[in-house]
């Protein structure tokens, strides 16, 4: 088996004196959708942000495609074609949708811009109608689509998604998950997905990890995790079958 695209080993991240990640091990293989589920404050987003060097891991190592990125500056990490749709979307609200996408293409350069724009437009037809609208005037769901679309404009090898379904109507969340699956199946895009919506995430993912208080407690295929009683009890109680 080839080496994973992303390897996280023994990563410890601190906020001041508080240890948010207590030695996390995790792999993402090329072409996989890997999901990380956990409760609020378990360290999901912290792990995602640590991968991007913000905050930096105090211990452990993060290796992407054979390169140690643990101590790289964030923008250098982005240049290795890791893209992120961050928590809270963080779109450029006073800039137009098109300009947002243009900023997303910083890493990919101008050559592929037209093609990529068409590709993203096909994936999220809603965005196409709003190209010249200011980002801040979009609805929450559209903003989420924009955040993902912006990340895709960088032609990523690894896409990090932080709670793409947060605050979205079930219909829209479904649409987003469908888009993620499409990207993975058609373009073989590797996706690392952080979610609270455990049911959907595990159904979508090839493999999953469960994080509790900064530690990985369970790992396995999506289907396996879905059937684990402790996962069901903790994250799917009252969820759909």
């Amino acid at each position: 088996m080839t080496a994973p695209l992303l390897t996280v080993r023994g990563v410890k991240t601190f906020y001041g004196n508080i240890m948010a990640l207590k030695g996390v091990d995790l792999d993402v293989n090329e072409g996989e959708i890997v999901t990380l589920i956990g409760a609020n404050g378990a360290g999901k987003s912290t792990l995602m942000m640590t991968t991007f060097g913000n905050p930096r891991a105090r211990e452990g190592s993060i290796v992407f495609d054979g390169r140690d990125i643990t101590h790289m500056p964030t923008h250098e990490i982005a240049k290795l074609r890791i893209a992120q749709s961050p928590e809270g979307r963080r779109i450029f609200s006073r800039m137009s949708v098109l300009e947002n996408l243009q900023m997303g293409a910083t890493v990919a350069g101008a050559d592929n811009f037209t093609d990529d724009l068409a590709r993203v437009g096909k994936l999220f037809p809603l965005l196409e109608k709003r190209m010249h609208q200011r980002g801040g005037t979009l609805s929450g769901g559209e903003q989420q689509m924009l955040a993902i679309a912006r990340a895709l404009m960088g032609r990523p090898r690894l896409l990090l998604l932080d709670e793409p379904s947060l605050g979205l109507a079930p219909m829209l969340a479904k649409q987003i998950f469908r888009a993620i699956r499409e990207l993975n199946e058609r373009d073989r895009l590797t996706v690392f997905l952080v979610e609270q919506n455990a049911f959907h995430a595990l159904k979508l993912a090839h493999r999953g990890y469960v994080i509790v208080n900064g530690e990985i407690t369970l790992a396995g295929s999506g289907r396996e995790l879905l059937e684990r009683p402790e996962v069901r009890a903790a994250y799917l109680e009252g969820g759909r079958r």
């Binding site: 982005a78 240049k79 963080r90 900023m103 910083t106 960088g154």
Partner: peptide, 24 residues
């Protein structure tokens, strides 16, 4: 120009800028 666009994007959100590969 790219640098000017980066200025504006930085005004909007510095963290997002960095994760898009812009050297802030």
């Amino acid at each position: 120009l790219p640098v000017g666009r980066a200025w504006e994007a930085m005004r909007e959100d510095e963290i997002a800028c960095r994760s898009l590969g812009i050297n802030t």
